[in-house]
Design a protein around this nucleic acid. Structure first.
Lengths: 218, 218
DNA sequence: GCGAGGGTCAACCTTTTGGTGGAGGAGGCT
DNA sequence: AGCCTCCTCCACCAAAAGGTTGACCCTCGC
């Protein structure tokens, strides 16, 4: 094999400017890795992906305009062989799960060392996956839990937003009795005993994003 | 004045390895700025500060071993002229407030540009403060609100952890009637109408850290 | 066609929560 | 001493939430 080996072409998607800059600088001095593009939001990420068709895409989940999970889904719809490494601070089990479901090959917590990151890029490029033990642990825990139905998720979201049963009924245009039915069901699935626990569980697990609490659009 | 101007000596405190690395690399190529130390946790931060006595300290609030706010307090106790720039992702109004109370001179959100960061370092080194409009906005909002008493905070924390009034009474060794009194009071102060809203408000404002929800130590 | 699961609703009941007013004691500040 | 805040507690009430059972209607897959 020649000294001119093929470089791994990497796309970096990260909205935090200094972090992205740091990642790019870090990776560009590594032998065999070439950062071919950068994106600061989800929409740009897709554009950049189509343009450069990178071997590996490093992506944060929290992005403006379009979330990381959606980006992964979209891109893999048209390019199934696309390899993604999710690189994020911990945002709740739900995101881990959905990212891996969407086809992410690795999940790294910010805070890993440069060596870990580089090693993971090579691993993923070689077609393998890489899930750190801490993440695998959470995934395993999540497995035992039942999925919420769409309607139950609607109700849960309203609960997190501090709505009463009556308000939820009005909002979703169903009777209060139905709201109670859903709540009773979702309490069981979440393994909690009241709405307050359901709310904190939802936030903590990332089922309902914390940002949505700021200023309700309604 | 000579060409050999005095450089601004900077200490970078940030637990995320790649982010810290990026910041240091970024700042070290800037004219007139010299990164004299790095720290990955709060305890190390204090050690490094004493060792280098930097002009400006860049610090994240979420740190292992000792939080950023505590570091600022400690250091300014022994070195009141110490200048801190808080550099963090948004963790709730409470942290902003407490960091500035502790004597931070500036508060920057990760995601700012390198230019903003550099400009702020110079500004702070010159003895001025720098609070972005978005942050000032939140501070202003917080001003109108009343402080919770220590006991009310205790109760609120229990609420966030999903305890019932009865459980809270047992936990804090007071009667359920007293718990109700505190709750009634804190609901008013938080401007909410029930415990679920109180819980989400507490999390969102950073009064009760989300991490404490994982596995209760009890 | 039949069962399973999801969504809708009702009646009934118990427990919890929130709202109000009052009241006494401890500690701090003037 | 007076005044204030905080913490403590009680009683009473109304509203909300939680638990249970049973029911009807879809749709989807077998």
């Amino acid at each position: 094999m020649s000294v001119e080996q093929e470089k791994i072409r990497v796309l970096v998607v990260e909205d935090h400017h200094v972090v992205r800059q740091g990642l790019v600088a870090l990776l560009n001095v590594v032998d065999g890795i070439d950062v071919v593009g950068e994106a600061a939001d989800g929409v740009e990420a897709i554009t950049q992906f189509r343009k450069h068709l990178p071997n590996v895409t490093l992506i944060d989940l929290r992005l403006p305009r379009m979330g990381g999970v959606d980006v992964i889904q979209r891109v893999r719809m048209e390019t199934p062989q696309a390899r993604f490494i999710v690189l994020t601070t911990y945002d709740g089990d739900e995101d881990i799960y959905r990212a891996l479901q969407a086809g992410a090959k690795a999940y790294l917590l910010k805070g890993m060392t440069s060596d870990e990151l580089i090693a993971t890029i090579r691993t993923v490029h070689a077609g393998k996956s890489h899930i750190p033990p801490a993440i695998a642990q959470r995934l395993a825990e999540r497995m035992g839990t039942e999925e919420l139905t769409p309607r139950e998720s609607d109700v849960l979201e309203q609960i997190v937003h501090g709505k009463s049963n009556k308000e939820i009924a009005t909002e979703l245009e169903i009777s209060e009795a139905t709201v109670k039915t859903h709540i009773n069901s979702l309490l069981g699935k979440l393994g909690v005993t009241d709405r307050t626990q359901a709310a904190t569980a939802a936030i903590q697990r990332g089922i309902v994003p914390l940002e949505s609490l700021r200023k309700p659009k309604s």
